[in-house]
Write a protein that binds this DNA or RNA. Structure first.
Lengths: 153, 153
DNA sequence: TCAGAATAGTAAGCGCGCATACTAATTACA
DNA sequence: TGTAATTAGTATGCGCGCTTACTATTCTGA
């Protein structure tokens, strides 16, 4: 197929890294959604729960700190954490030092769920990116470079 | 930082290709959104308008055919095309052969807008993926492989 | 000390991506 | 030919990603 009415530099839409990135991410999201369905978690819920579990339950973690760690925006973080709190997976106490902030903590149930779900997610990722074989490292490195580059702008 | 309470295979979250893919795509979407703002187009609107312009205005193009070409889902396609029709960028006539379908056509104004916007989008992509330099080809190939692999499942 | 700037968190709202369900028209097949 | 299966398109609804605007609290510096 040849474009007649569109002045594009690409012969085929399959050569556009942007479009491909978009399509691949949509498919990856669908795979993750399917994987997490048995655990009753959405992707963002899983990411925040896992990140909070990662950060540990000793020091008081604010929503801002969690959002930074998970690269999630503050609004989404606030909304999802309240949902997780409603399910008893997370606690949101007032922060001892900062009156504006929340002191987050994973419950025992939340930690257990995170650890069960993370196994499934990593298996899903391994399957999804498995087709890259020995090029997985280069692909991951490229993604890391793109992320930091677009942050600097 | 070391995970104490999460049993993960990754030392750092930056090693997960899935998380990186998600973050990079979010930043790319933000860049595209900013680029298309002066043209009054969202990303999906641009993709569908450009794809329809690409397909040409001679034969009757159905929404299904356009959705397949653009890898957009039928619901989104329907909704966005009605918005584009409201702005006079697209026409949605009844299909001459198939009573269920719509015969899509770009208006002159729509074609002109698509051609102006595509320049900006390709410049945005060039800037965004420019940091990959000579590895851009390998990156694009990896994305293409991931897309087809996840389709087969 | 105290007024202004910065920060943590939330409300409301918009467009996207997708799932489910439905209507109307077409196609396939017995 | 007539009925079943398929297909094009749309309504509804949910969660995501983000923007704007707002409150309450903390920090900063004259």
């Amino acid at each position: 197929m040849t474009p007649r009415d569109l002045d594009t530099a690409f012969t085929d839409a399959d050569d556009s890294p942007g479009l491909l990135l978009w399509q691949v991410t949509n498919r990856w999201q669908a795979a993750i959604r399917l994987t997490l369905k048995p655990y009753g978690l959405t992707h963002v819920q899983f990411v925040l729960l896992a990140a909070l579990t990662w950060l540990g339950s000793e020091g008081p973690v604010t929503q801002k700190a969690l959002a930074d760690q998970a690269a999630s925006d503050p609004m989404m973080t606030s909304q999802v954490l309240r949902a997780l709190e409603g399910r008893g997976l997370v606690e949101r106490r007032p922060h001892p030092q900062d009156g504006r902030a929340r002191a987050l903590a994973v419950t025992e149930e939340g930690r257990a769920l995170a650890n069960r779900a993370v196994v499934a997610v990593e298996a899903c990722d391994a399957e999804f990116f498995g087709t890259l074989e020995e090029q997985t490292g280069a692909f991951t490195r490229a993604l890391r470079r793109l992320r930091t580059a677009s942050t600097q702008e």
